[in-house]
Amino acid sequence: MARGHRLPRGDGRAALAYLTPALLVLGGLMAYPIYQLVLISLFDYGQEQVSGGAPLVFLGLGNYTELLADKQFWTVLWQTVGFAATCVVGTLVVGAALAVLATRVRTWARTLLFLAALGAWATPAVAGSTIWLFLFDANFGLVNEVLGSTGFSWTFDRWTAFGLVAAQVVWCSFPFVMVTLYAGIKAIPQEVVEAAALDGASTVRTARSVLLPLLRPLILVVTIQSVIWDFKVFTQIYVMTSGGGIAGRNLVLNVYAYQQAFAASEYGLGATIGVVMTALLLLITIGYLRALRKSGEEL
């Protein structure tokens, strides 16, 4: 049965067989935590409840109304959206530019580019954040030394702090975009490009009408993946702004949830923030996919 590769559309059985293992692994490993998360978000679940010292109190949507009435939550939410958007755009622009560059330069230059990207990517987030802090240190940092602005604190002001963290996030996530798009460009058969050139298409024209459509599925993947990551940034904010900045003014949702859940031992409220974040990400992604499909994109 599995001999024919161009199966008629209806015959999904063979295809389903290849899909099932992956679906099972994911369903089993992700469904349960999500179920637990939603469950916990409906209870007043604190330290006493975990240790069994106090009975569980079912709140229903109590945690949600409390959260939505909290002014700080809304500030943090908008901050997160803005921060994530900046990071996504930055990552995509830098990653795509470097991917294109890597296809155009000599071998030694490409090796250097990859070395730079891999070095940034390879540095674990904690170490990377620490190193950036050293570099941008007010009194002893190399950056202030070069700019002649010794004594200027990058992490004190709310916006320079956000900017610095965003730059660090872009720094450690652009290699993913670069490597993926580079592999995508490389996988396009050379003949397609040559054919376009034979037909007299200019470089820009070839890029726009030949390469871009072929790369769209990949661009879609890296965009969505970046949105999901940058919406969930944790380590960089946590390390670089010492847990969310002075009076929490550099908080993003993930750090906020962590603070509520683990620092304040309000697991119920922390779980609620988790559910809200998941729901938001689902909405954003569905919206993005819808918009793409509406514009005639074959996904």
């Binding site: 179920y35 969930k232 949830a257």
Partner: peptide, 10 residues
């Protein structure tokens, strides 16, 4: 989409 922090406890 599940935030890592939120998935920790379960």
């Amino acid at each position: 989409m599940l935030p890592v922090v939120a998935g920790l406890l379960p």
